[in-house]
């Protein structure tokens, strides 16, 4: 894995180099259009629209951003590109909800009497199990006692996949095998966590499309059953979004929030060419912060979300 990481780092550097040119030209275009003007003109807005829309920010959020910038420019008047770029980034970043404790929190949380329970949800193939493996690794590295719950009992070999991750990062996992009732697995996991004094519990769930009514009800049930063991569990409901997903992610967030009160987001597969811009609108609309980003398949490839870096990346290429 270490070797793999070295390679991917090199690869990314190379990619950065390649992108540098495009990045400059984006800003060059923007600056050419604004120099010496006191108003953001059509050309700037068109460019901006293209950048944002092609990053999956979506038309309505893009319009919102453009309105904010126009308002800001009308008030402050700007002189050149540097200011515009800053205004742009500020305004976009302002849409992203803050985590309640800020980014200093890292992969840590305050010491508590009962285990901190994280329930991981999302549609099929977004990277739930992989993210759990990486989260477990980070929590363990931070000195926490971690327990995983294999409540994806539906997809072929999902339990095995989580088991392999648990072994890889050396944390225990509670499983009842394939086909078991996921709520029962979650219940068992929490019981076991309380009995063994775990610090953090992460419950994997089966991927489900958000328009499947029964499957969404099942999620609510899993959540409710957990509260029989720990009344305020789950403390964190982490919705995993694939960065390459387009506007449908908004509908995903809507439905998962309705079923489970999602309070954190993770954006996966950001090591590809997808920008994940749809997260901006979601974070703004639901006031849910993006907490983590996935940037590879290795156990270390999970980072704490940094909104300014994220906004910067929208303008990379």
């Amino acid at each position: 894995m270490a070797l793999f990481n070295v390679f991917s780092k090199k690869k990314k550097d190379k990619l950065e180099e390649g992108l540098q040119k495009t990045k400059q030209s984006v800003f060059a275009k923007l600056s050419k259009a604004v120099v010496g003007k006191s108003k953001v003109d059509e050309e700037v807005l068109d460019n901006l629209e293209e950048i944002l829309v092609t990053s999956d920010v979506g038309v309505s959020t893009t319009l919102k951003i453009i309105e904010r910038i126009e308002a800001r420019v009308a008030k402050d008047k700007y002189l050149g590109t540097a200011e515009l770029n800053q205004i742009l980034k500020d305004e976009i970043a302002a849409l992203l909800a803050e985590t309640d404790k800020g980014k200093t929190l890292g992969f840590d949380f305050p010491k508590r009497d009962v285990p901190y329970v994280i329930m991981v949800v999302g549609v099929n193939g977004v990277g739930k199990t992989t993210t759990i493996g990486k989260l477990a690794y980070q929590f363990k590295a931070a000195g926490k006692k971690v327990l995983l719950g294999a409540a994806d009992t539906f997809r072929a070999a999902a339990v095995d996949q989580l088991m392999i991750w648990a072994e890889r990062v050396d944390v225990p996992v509670v499983s009842q095998g394939m086909g078991a009732d996921p709520a029962s697995v979650a219940f068992d996991t929490l019981k076991s966590a309380v009995a063994n004094g775990s610090d953090v519990v992460i419950i994997d769930t089966a991927g489900r499309l958000h328009n499947k009514v029964n499957l969404m009800k099942e999620l609510t049930k899993i959540k409710n059953v957990m509260q029989k063991v720990i009344p305020d569990a789950p403390h964190e409901i982490l919705l995993i979004l694939d960065a390459s997903t387009g506007q449908n992610a908004i509908e995903q967030a809507t439905q998962f929030t309705a079923a489970t009160e999602v309070n954190a987001l993770a954006l996966t597969k950001l090591d590809g060419t997808a920008k994940g811009g749809v997260a901006i609108g979601i974070s703004e609309q639901f006031k849910v912060p993006v907490k983590y980003i996935g940037i590879g398949e290795g156990k270390e490839d999970l980072q704490i979300f940094d909104k300014f870096e994220f906004v910067d990346s929208l303008f990379d290429a």
């Binding site: 992610a249 060419t273 997808a274």
Partner: peptide, 15 residues
């Protein structure tokens, strides 16, 4: 390809 793919579909499909 996932039918939920956004703007990146262009890049990925082409690459």
């Amino acid at each position: 390809v996932d039918s939920m793919t956004g703007q990146d579909a262009v890049n990925t499909a082409k690459a």
